[in-house]
Amino acid sequence: MENEIRETGCPHRAAHAEGDWRGDTWEEVFQSGWEACGAASPGWTGAQSAAESWRGQKRLPIVARLRAWSRYARVVLLIGAAVGAAWFGSRQVTTGASANESVSSVPASSGLHGELAGTNADSGAAATLQVDVHGDVRRPGLVTLQEGARVRDAVRAAGGFVHAADAEDVNQAALVWDGEEIDIPAATTPSSASQQADAQGTEPLAAPARDAEAESQAALTSSASREVRTRKSAVSSGQKIDINTADVETLETLPGVGPKRAAAIVAYRQAHGPFPDLESLRHVKGIGAKTLAKWRDLITFGGVGQASDAGHREP
């Protein structure tokens, strides 16, 4: 400490050097010491002195130079250590996947929290699930994943995308479920679909249709059955959703519908029977005129109200 004071001529800096673990640096020196140092020797910073020494204007001892640069180096080292460790951890997953082509080591759940709340601490034996991946992947077929896997892991287990552009239209972060069928569309499909929509003169619907397209592509990754997947594809391809038979996942493909609102629709339908027309949907909490206007061309009412394609009763 005394050496440091003599060396720097600044007791606060010495306290800083000394106090990281023993003194007050943790709470106080950062706050007061450096300000006082600045007052005692205005304009001095470690970076400046290091830079000056590099320029040869002022020679500092090598330890002092090291100290001057250590504040930058420690940040770089800290970030580098964390990133390196995480990269190593992700490589372990990749290595495991390549060792067993059909198995991808992804977040596994164990313990109550891990199993139930989506956390994965302290894993033990993990449940596996099987999904069928086909479409624009290198090795389409059945892949086995661990519980908690995401679409990215399924695609990786299936050999990866055939074209890099395929990844743009797939929500790779979505969780996959046991028995799911994942269809990776070719990269050209969405644009051709939207061009087709434009060509048909459906400009007012183009934006929601594209949204529905994107949403349905994403939803493909989280649906639990072929039927649901087909329905979600149907939304984007212009087919309509039967509001009286659709399940929660299918309803979520409608614009502005999340899990809560979809559940509310289903709950109301079960409590009060099928919806006869568009206006009857306003009884569901959270659905207003604006929302119904968006759905007008996306939903039907089956045979209940003999509704027209536009969601209105025929005259």
Binding site: A82, A85, A86, S90, Q92, V93, R150, R152, Q172, A173
Partner: peptide, 21 residues
């Protein structure tokens, strides 16, 4: 989110390992 490798899955890490890190 659509950038390559935006969400990486990692190998299991124990509590002791996390504390050490």
């Amino acid at each position: 989110a659509s950038w390559r490798g935006s969400l990486q899955s990692l190998a299991p890490l124990s509590l002791e390992g996390a504390c050490a890190m």
